[in-house]
Design a protein around this nucleic acid. Structure first.
Lengths: 235, 235
DNA sequence: TTCACCTGGATTGTATCCAATCTAATTTTA
DNA sequence: TAAAATTAGATTGGATACAATCCAGGTGAA
């Protein structure tokens, strides 16, 4: 990564998405610049960019706060994401799976299957499954060869705390169901059954969203954000 | 608008979307700052924001150029937009049209119908029709009450030259067909026929996209961008 | 001639200074 | 006492100076 501003963007984006800065937390330019050992200039540029991406809320002459999503917001995000991933699956099914993507998906399914049969779930197993799950979806929408679609899906996946909360619904049955969904989706795409692929992808994402929304609501995320909460409180 | 940076963002975004700065045109910080009578600081902030929005391409230590879309890119944009507007229509149909939206759509259809029956097409008529068409879609996806969905659709509508090129397919028959589509979509939504509403919206947007792509291809936009073309050449 | 190297100009990236604005505590006044 | 006004502090917004980088043209040697 070339410029300091871009380094700061990467650093802050990561911390926001992973919950190091909680929703509602205020990002102070001076604190950040001293913490990151750069001047205010690249920090300001980074904050402006992250706000344009939708990760921060900006109020002129006041500052930036980490954007917070209610459970209803998350429901909307997944509603959109389900039709987008449905489109991606349909597109790939219609245009034909590239050989590279076919290989990646095949291997992904093999690895996922072995994971799904485990009885013991360590932190590392969780991480592996998360990675495999993300990769499966990424391979599909990358193979749709629609850069705009990729950007929209990427935006729908870049929500503060989304990855953190997702972490909580990895139980054995969920993983097994997810594996079955992936296998069927792969089958539909590989056979060029575009309508089936679209419906399977939509439903798969929709169900994942419903589980996530339930946990979001249970955890009470996005509600009762205390005003003017500061960065230093977020760690 | 409060800060200078935001003023510059509005000004530049407008000029990029309307083709005042052609795709591939290079945006020089100093030229812009003198032209807009501000220092480089707000200009730099604005450029970073517009790049984050996807309107500009950024190369570190080199600068910003207006992003250019090929006809294939536009095809992808409309593929995504069609499923998103389909989702919006379905959502509104399921949750019920708000009374405010119902009124706006009804009046919009009335005005559009009178326009569609005109035989003579002036520049002003074109503008009016454009405005009514945009408003019809905006009212629907605003009434879906899904802010994330609105952001995604907004992003899909914020493409350099999109509005400019759209301008060319306003012939009488197209407008009449569009009016019919809108009327049927309104009917489906008002009756709560969510599946029908979704399909109509998808198809309506898809057809509009297909016409636009044809014109995009015919005009040869997005191809053969000369390297390092400058702002001053773009006017 | 051609390729490698170098150098000057232009442009972007960063730091810092000052101005403008907001927030919150304090004081004043009814 | 309570509400309005004021003022001090902190924070953000903008301008400018300087450093780093890139690009084009020119110079030199093989």
């Amino acid at each position: 990564m070339s410029t300091r501003a871009q380094t700061v963007v990467l650093s802050l984006r990561d911390k926001i998405l992973n919950g190091h800065y909680a929703p509602g937390a205020r990002l102070n330019e001076i604190e950040l610049s001293t913490a990151l050992a750069v001047s205010r200039t690249p920090v300001r540029a980074a904050l402006a960019i992250l706000a344009a991406e939708g990760l921060l809320d900006y109020v002129p002459n006041s500052g930036y706060v980490v954007r917070s999503y209610t459970a209803n917001d998350i429901e909307g995000v997944y509603a959109a994401r389900s039709v987008l991933e449905g489109l991606a699956a349909r597109t790939v099914a219609e245009r034909g799976l590239s050989s590279g993507a076919r290989g990646l998906l095949h291997q992904n399914l093999t690895e996922t299957e072995t994971i799904a049969q485990r009885t013991e779930w360590t932190e590392a197993t969780h991480d592996t499954w998360r990675r495999l799950n993300e990769q499966f979806h990424e391979v599909i929408f990358a193979d749709a060869c629609n850069s705009h679609l990729c950007e929209l899906i990427e935006k729908s996946r870049s929500i503060p705390l989304l990855k953190t909360v997702k972490f909580r619904w990895h139980d054995a049955q969920t993983v097994k169901n997810s594996f079955t969904d992936h296998a069927e989706l792969f089958d539909a795409i590989a056979r060029g059954q575009s309508a089936r692929a679209e419906h399977l992808a939509r439903e798969h994402v929709y169900q994942a969203g419903r589980r996530l929304v339930a946990n979001w609501r249970k955890a009470g995320i996005g509600e009762n954000i205390s005003p003017r909460q500061n960065v230093s409180d977020a760690a």
